[in-house]
Amino acid sequence: MSANSLPTAPPAAGITIRGLEVVYTTGQGQIPAVNGINLDIVGGQITGIIGESGSGKSTLAMAMMNAVPHPGKIVKGSVIIDGVGNMMTLDKESQRRARGRHVGFVFQAAQNSLNPLTRIGHQVLDLGRSHNVKDLRALLRRAKELLERMGMDADRVLTSYQHELSGGMRQRVGIMFALVLDAQIVILDEPTTALDMLSQASVLEIVRSIQEERGLTIILITHDMGVVADLADRVIVMYGGELAEEGKTEDVLAHPQHPYTRGLIRAIPRISGNLDQAVALAGSPPDLQTFVQNACLFYDRCPERMAQCQNHRPPYEIAGPGRKVACFKVMAK
């Protein structure tokens, strides 16, 4: 058989986001939590989106599924998921089907997304029924395989209630739910924040190996630069509802360009090396004032700010192969 007659695997699904704008209406006015974002999520890779509290990273994740909770509202833009279409224009029923079947979502605290009153196995069946799965036995079998794959006693887990599982186990159950309908895209929102370091490391290890096995597209949302640096192929740095920098993980870690990215990397507590090398980021995460100012979003905390930065926001531009950055100082170089 010649090489070109081999069936080529279909390219893994990616996401194309254009001009996305999400606004929260509050007593103090309209807050643009996601402000005109253009972003291409490459299929078959792990993309890490990093930002501090209030950077809009979770809102962006919810917007990718057109599921921003009230009082947030998507006012502009499109999210095109390969194989599904534009989430903004699809009818409600198709959107619902896409969530779960095409895009799996793992929430920050899995205990909040599991039903406390029914056993895990029943919830797998409920999920299957709501997506019109014909062969429920096969579905349960897949759930079992996935759980065992993650180092758990599947029979015990499926007959347990969520309170009988530890935090790390619940998070793995969350991952199982995201994958059991064969979703090709999985969004993980702060999957390890409530876990201790060992559980975190094992959950990351599981995500890594399942991604490799199935060529999934994974979007990992976190405030922990260490987690992104360990797991992601690409890093996207978010600040105040806009993108600050993106690139291949190795490139961004070794040669960060945006002062904010540099600050985030320097602020990681390190296990070896000089203690004074690591410094916390100065200032506070963006507040309501920051979102509406004319200046660069990072202006107040930036150690390298220039006069220009006070009156304009820097555009998000290409800064090398696969790299983009929003900073006047970098552009001037």
Partner: peptide, 13 residues
């Protein structure tokens, strides 16, 4: 050793 292994490794650094 397991606890120390759990500290994330910074790719690129």
């Amino acid at each position: 050793q397991a606890l120390l292994s759990a500290v994330p490794v910074l790719k690129g650094l």
